[in-house]
């Protein structure tokens, strides 16, 4: 009889933690999104859906949504392609491959703020190594962080660089999970390296690729604001402000918590859609054969 309760009792700590740190704040966010609130919270007025109205009527918000779309799609497409190429190289049995793997993975261990600082130094218009090299070799003067669209590209490069290690680790484990016999059989049948890659490697990596694509959406959409804050602060002229950076700025720099709550509701909805896609397509239709 008491055994029936045991699982529930064991689950209590988890529920308390999730409830306290996830559900309670989430409910509060829904509530706050309907209010206009002073920075210290000493004044607040119920305004219904007016925060959302302002948000969707603001031209800057739709611009930021578009920036986010470009930022996320481009970072993921380019990021995954580069990661896959690196993984193929790192999957080769060459001496010292362990050292190369460690080096390639290391950016992931760096915090976004540090990554942003590093890239700012590299891209400094005059004394940065990247700008200096471009000037010396190609005679190009480039203001990476202060002109459009270079700033957006710079932020993407930093984000892709930071996330490279994570993608590569998963691709590598995927590659090592493909039995060698498939390749041997293909070789006997006369398939070249390119055919082998497109007919064997890529299809068999599809579950990992889908998983990584979803994880990268989460990473680029939600974690990227540290890099943006350090490198461009959303500039020049708001061109690198993504939805999450806008939320951070409204909430923690402008102290407008009503507006910031409304923005996080929008992001919660976006996240809900992504989660739905994940469960619907990734978990069901793509599986290891």
């Amino acid at each position: 009889m008491p055994r029936k309760y045991v699982p529930y009792v064991l689950l209590i700590p988890t529920f308390v933690i999730i409830g306290l740190f996830i559900y309670y704040p989430a409910v509060m966010t829904f509530q706050k999104a309907l209010y206009k609130i002073s920075p210290f919270g000493n004044r607040s007025f119920f305004v219904g859906l007016r925060n959302f109205e302002n948000l969707f009527n603001s031209p800057s918000y739709s611009q930021e949504a578009f920036t986010t779309l470009i930022f996320v799609v481009a970072s993921i497409a380019i990021g995954l392609t580069i990661s896959l190429l690196f993984s193929l190289l790192l999957n080769e049995k060459v001496p010292g491959v362990g050292i190369f793997r460690t080096i390639v993975f290391s950016p992931y261990a760096v915090s976004p703020a540090i990554a942003g600082t590093l890239w700012s130094f590299l891209l400094n218009p005059v004394v940065g190594y990247v700008s200096y090299t471009l000037l010396r070799i190609f005679g190009i003067h480039s203001e990476w962080l202060t002109s459009y669209p270079l700033a957006l590209i710079a932020v993407m490069v930093a984000t892709i660089w930071q996330n490279l290690g994570f993608n590569i680790i998963f691709f590598l484990s995927g590659l090592q999970g493909i039995p060698n016999s498939y390749y041997e059989a293909a070789k006997i049948d006369g398939a070249g390296a390119v055919t082998r890659f497109f007919k064997i490697t890529l299809p068999l990596l599809s579950p990992i690729t889908f998983y990584l694509a979803i994880m990268d959406v989460v990473f680029t959409m939600f974690t990227s604001f540290g890099i943006i804050d350090i490198m461009t602060q959303g500039g020049p002229g708001n061109t690198t402000t993504t939805l999450i950076y806008r939320l951070y700025r409204d909430g923690f720099i402008y102290f407008n918590s009503g507006m910031a709550s409304a923005e996080s509701i929008v992001l919660i909805l976006v996240m809900a859609v992504i989660t739905f896609i994940y469960f619907k397509f990734v978990q069901r239709t793509v599986h290891y054969r």
């Binding site: 700012s120 218009p125 005059v126 203001e143 962080l145 500039g235």
Partner: peptide
């Protein structure tokens, strides 16, 4: 004039390295 961009550090680096 070279625009140092957001924050103080970039402009400061340019001045310290005598490029401005």
């Amino acid at each position: 004039m070279i625009n140092g961009g957001p924050g103080w550090d970039n402009a400061n680096g340019i001045f310290a390295s005598q490029k401005a």
